[in-house]
Design a protein around this nucleic acid. Structure first.
Lengths: 339, 339
DNA sequence: ATGAAAGCGCTAACAT
DNA sequence: ATGTTAGCGCTTTCAT
């Protein structure tokens, strides 16, 4: 392995100059910079991340913490963040909490404590106080994505507004028996998202003068299976049957669409269904949804951190930034009492 | 930030002893080890990864390279690998090639060249010769998952056998008009997997004395949408219509099931459909599949590397190891000419 | 613009 | 079992 001294010798300059030439920090004449680069390439020299990190105190690495990986939202956020970070020369360390198992403690106490990274992106995490202290106490910048985090700058969608928009859309179509599939409030991973979305749903109903019927709200797991099972109960029961379902996520909505078809119901003739997220399958399935652009959220979080690191600031302003969302109307919703 | 010297002073020992006590390498009396640990905890001391890495030449980090993230197979492999790595105290650096875009070059030339990691797991990669040289030329262990890689130790499923098994299953059920949805051989990401699976499909037919009908093979994208579109063409054409479809992946098979339903066909009465992978939705959808346990493959790859690193070997034996697979029969396949 | 040299915070010989 | 010390390979003042 060629070291910086080899490059210096071959280029006929000092190691300091090589360091400056290669990192771009500090003044170097164009001529020597080119020569140094050429020699480095020739020798196949690459700076040692450990040595560089030790000397400079920066690792050019950003950590991304997720509750688990097998969910479209998380992987989209990661992809968005990573693309931006790569552009700026940062590598990504992935911390997976594996859905709150006993692994979670290990990740915080062992991995995250080491502070291998210059900054952190925490996706959809509900942190305990010691966990929060651990992450923020290091003095390194951190940004949360997917929900406000106490004391941490975050990027999040207006969950009330999103659900309200989806609900108002079906109200506009003439629906009044509108069901809502939402998350269990006690579910640790999804913190306040479910309850916020439920509030948005109820707000839309109330504003339209429609009474909130508790039998039309079903606690549902945030997955295709979850949506399927809840919708099947809801749609299979003649006494409860709604004309529209506003699901708190696209995965739930996709499951609900399946359930409707299995019951012989046509979408949207017999039942209108809408989701929230902007899932990659929504277009294929013809699902009306409120897109919250998760990849873009990841990219924004990364940009915030990169700017922060570039400017030498120790932390991003700890406020919650609301991100864009748009209603995308497709074939799964239609007027009530269609032909 | 407390350093190792602070701990040493507080514990009344030398820095070397602290290092030994905390890392577990080298002899330390139980008493002093406990005291050192207590002092370290008290001071909130954590070793600096950079310093430790520079001094020891090891980073306790393993890199995982994937073509992209938004696919169930890749995230499953990552989760499996990461769980095992975490157990052994390794963090994970994630390298995403973003499906062969121009980003790919940047990842190889910039990120991977730095060799931040002690070892590498390459998932489903078709490497160019310079890329392979880059990865293997560092003298650090590497393992491929999801397909044999020239000159690299790999873990892969017997793609011929897997497809053959799925095909034999429907042959056993009496089918003879059996279609195959497979990948485009020219598709860069999926290297030989599609062609191998096609070979397995054809081998099963031939062995059973069934003629291979080229109109029953459809080049299909490895996704739900892909399977949906191909199946719709296949099933909608009365001249071509098969009684069974063997898809090269579960995602394709799920799409095919949807297409069948949209055409008013019952599964498996009118059409039997099987997949390959063991996708999380297969059980929910009642899809017959050949499970190849991707998470377990990731875990095995991680174990191989951890052992290799622990034993001080520089590389894992460069052979291809075949992993387990099992036929999982569900409701999507049934006898031909059912009631 | 360039060079000399002092660390960065550890680990691993080696010595005791 | 523990201490001493020489690096690990860079970055970054501080001179020049």
């Amino acid at each position: 392995m060629a070291g910086i001294e080899d490059v210096a010798r071959r280029a006929g300059v000092s190691v300091a100059t090589v360091s400056r030439a290669l990192s771009g920090r500090g003044p170097v004449s164009p001529a020597t910079r080119d020569k140094v680069r050429a020699m480095a390439d020739e020798l196949g020299y690459v700076v040692s991340p450990s040595a560089s990190g030790l000397a400079s105190g920066t690792t050019r690495t950003v950590g991304i913490v997720v509750p688990f990986l097998t969910s479209w939202f998380y992987t989209s956020v990661i992809e968005g963040a990573q693309a931006t970070l790569l552009d700026h020369g940062y590598d990504v360390t992935l911390y997976n909490l594996f859905a709150n198992g006993d692994v979670r403690g290990a990740v915080f106490e062992r991995s995250l404590r080491r502070r291998r990274d210059d900054a952190l992106i925490a996706v959809s995490l509900e942190l305990s106080e010691p966990e929060r202290a651990l992450l923020t106490g290091t003095g390194k910048p951190i940004v949360g994505v997917g929900g406000p985090l106490e004391g941490v700058p975050t990027l999040s969608v207006d969950d009330v507004g999103v659900a309200r928009l989806a609900t108002e859309h079906v109200i506009m179509l003439g629906h009044t028996r509108i069901a809502h599939l939402g998350g269990d409030v006690d579910h640790e991973l999804d913190f306040h998202v479910p309850s916020q979305r439920r509030l948005g749903y109820e707000a839309a109903l109330t504003a339209a003068g429609i009474e909130v019927d508790p039998t039309l709200f079903v606690v549902t797991e945030f997955s295709i299976e979850g949506g399927y099972h809840s919708a099947k109960q809801l749609l299979g029961d003649p006494r409860r049957r709604p004309t529209a379902i506003v699901a708190a996520s696209d995965e739930m909505a996709l499951g609900a669409m399946l359930a409707a078809r299995h019951l012989g119901l046509s979408v949207p003739q017999d039942i209108s269904i809408s989701g929230i997220d902007g899932h990659e399958l929504a277009e294929f399935a013809g699902l009306t949804t409120v897109d919250q652009y998760p990849a873009r959220q990841g990219a924004q979080a990364a940009e915030l951190l990169v700017e922060c690191l570039a400017s030498g600031l120790k932390a991003v302003d700890a406020t919650d930034r609301k991100v864009d969302y748009d209603l995308v109307v497709r074939g799964s919703t239609g007027p009530v009492h269609s032909p």
